Amino acid sequence: MLALALTAELNGVTDLRPNDSADNPFHFSFKVQCTSCRETHPNWVTVNRFSTDELSGSRGEANFVWRCKNCKREHSANITTPPASYPLSSPPKAQNIITFDCRGLEFTEFKADGEWLATGLESSTKFAEIDLTEGEWYDYDEKAGEEVSIKVLKWEIRRA
């Protein structure tokens, strides 16, 4: 089991989470490595919890199925928990955002593309379309009358 953990400095917002629904699935982007031959796929791959692919040999299905070009083995990963929200904490501490059951592969790097959501701490203002690709985000909470931000993002893939 692997988990994607996040540590971030939230100012004026809480409950940072991917915008993930059946109508609008969030695609988690990773670099993937074969645990058999240690070959790393050269491209980013995406995984979402609402789609599955068949495993060969009628062995079921998984959220992500990949055949290593080097050793020709088929590997898979399933999302075992829906995405969790990251609450405001002081000091910021790592929290698992999503957990995967990986068979024959490891995710080695995460890219935070996609749309994120957060809630105003004092005002409960809903912030949507948050872009974390630059590693930080700034906005203004009209109801609270103050700037809000998400900074010092640290993504970690760890054993769950």
Rank of each mutant, 00 (worst) to 15 (best):
R17G: 14
C34Q: 00
V32R: 01
C34I: 01
E61H: 12
D53L: 09
C34D: 00
T40E: 07
N63M: 07
N43R: 05
F50M: 02
E39K: 06
N19E: 13
F30P: 02
T35A: 04
T52G: 02
V65L: 14
W66I: 15
H41K: 02
L55E: 05
N24V: 13
D53V: 03
P25W: 07
T46R: 11
G60N: 03
H41R: 02
G57Q: 04
N48G: 06
D53F: 08
T46P: 01
D23K: 15
E54C: 12
Q33L: 11
T35Y: 06
E54H: 04
N48M: 04
E54P: 08
S21R: 15
E39Y: 12
P25K: 15
N63K: 14
N43E: 09
C34W: 00
L55I: 10
S36E: 05
T35F: 05
N48C: 08
S56G: 08
R38Y: 02
A22L: 15
Q33C: 05
F50A: 02
T52S: 13
R38N: 10
F30E: 05
T46D: 12
V32I: 13
R49Q: 08
S36A: 13
N43Q: 12
N48Y: 04
R67V: 15
T46I: 04
P25M: 08
C34L: 00
C34P: 00
W44Y: 08
Q33N: 01
R38G: 01
P18F: 07
N24W: 05
C34G: 00
V45S: 01
V65K: 05
R17K: 13
H27P: 03
V47H: 14
S29D: 05
G57D: 03
R17L: 15
N48A: 02
F28R: 11
V45A: 08
T52V: 12
G57S: 07
G60Y: 03
V45I: 15
R17M: 14
T35P: 03
N19H: 11
E54L: 09
S51P: 01
S56M: 08
W44I: 15
N19T: 13
R49E: 08
R49M: 15
D53I: 09
A62R: 11
P42F: 05
R59W: 03
V47E: 12
P18S: 11
P25H: 11
C34H: 00
T35D: 04
T52C: 10
E61L: 03
V45D: 00
P42Y: 09
V65H: 10
K31M: 05
